[in-house]
């Protein structure tokens, strides 16, 4: 079985981004970029399925500017076999990403597509589900466990009330949650090896997909700042403040 994993280049999760003074967006100049953490988990899952002999090839795809080849190389250093970059400098709605991925799915015919549940920049949590609708595939979102059994995939999902397990026909879509696995680190020799793995570059036009945005960002502003509070000296004082000052207990 072939597995397609979709990875996004985003700001590193440790960075506290700042809004640009002109309100057009956040300042990403000189900011560390990385693979979206949920996508790292997706790559790890694909690689593990290959190591278990369940998958025979892991193909990684990323859509974005030239620099997202770094994340494709990282995924290949982690064990993916080859990469596809769809190059565009335009910021894309999840719908456009899903449409491009649907074309890749059509070409590659994977048995399983693994995506992150959410990009930590847009916080959209949409692409995998959209890809499901566009390809007619079932989905197991927010996965904390993935098992291939008898031509189907069983996915345990982190839902609001606890855990839910579904059985999906293949081909299927899985989106990863934090507890699915703990991604490995790529070693230097593996980074060297990854340089020789094939990386195909395409453009949205090659797929005939209209990626013009449906959503326009009019303004980006910082959130309301909280007023700095006080340090209390004791539990007594804390309880007194909560009762008489804040009046919340």
């Amino acid at each position: 079985m072939k597995i397609l994993v979709s990875v996004k280049r985003v700001v590193d999760f440790n960075v506290k981004v700042r809004v640009k003074p002109d309100g057009t967006g956040v300042d990403l100049g000189n900011v560390k970029m990385a693979m979206n953490p949920f996508c790292e988990i997706a790559v790890e899952e694909g690689v593990r399925l290959k190591e278990q002999g369940i998958a025979d090839e892991v193909v990684v795809v990323s859509i974005g500017p030239k620099a997202c080849q770094e994340q494709i190389r990282t995924a290949m250093a982690l064990g993916a076999d080859r990469g596809i970059q769809i190059e565009t400098d335009q910021e894309l709605d999840s719908l456009a990403v899903a449409k491009l991925l649907a074309k890749v799915v059509e070409e590659e015919q994977p048995g399983l597509v693994i995506l992150g549940k959410q990009s930590i920049d847009s916080d959209n949590n949409q692409t995998g589900q959209m890809l499901g609708a566009l390809t007619g595939m079932p989905q197991g979102t927010f996965a904390s466990e993935v098992n291939l059994v008898e031509g189907k995939v069983e996915v345990t999902r982190e839902v609001d009330g606890g855990l839910q397990t579904l059985s999906l026909n293949l081909p299927a879509i899985v989106t990863t949650d934090l507890r699915l696995n703990e991604p490995r680190y790529a070693s230097l020799p593996n980074f060297m090896k990854a340089k020789r793995k094939p990386l195909d570059t395409k453009s949205p036009a090659d797929f005939g997909v209209d990626i013009s945005p449906r959503l326009k960002t009019l303004k980006v502003e910082p959130p309301a700042e909280r007023q700095a509070g006080i340090i209390v000296g004791s539990v007594d004082e804390l309880v007194e403040k909560l009762k008489n000052e804040a009046k919340v207990i």
């Binding site: 981004v17 956040v26 930590i120 920049d121 980006v220 959130p223």
Partner: peptide, 9 residues
């Protein structure tokens, strides 16, 4: 967006 570090309109 960005874990609530920015609010987009």
């Amino acid at each position: 967006i960005y874990a609530g570090n920015a609010i987009a309109t």
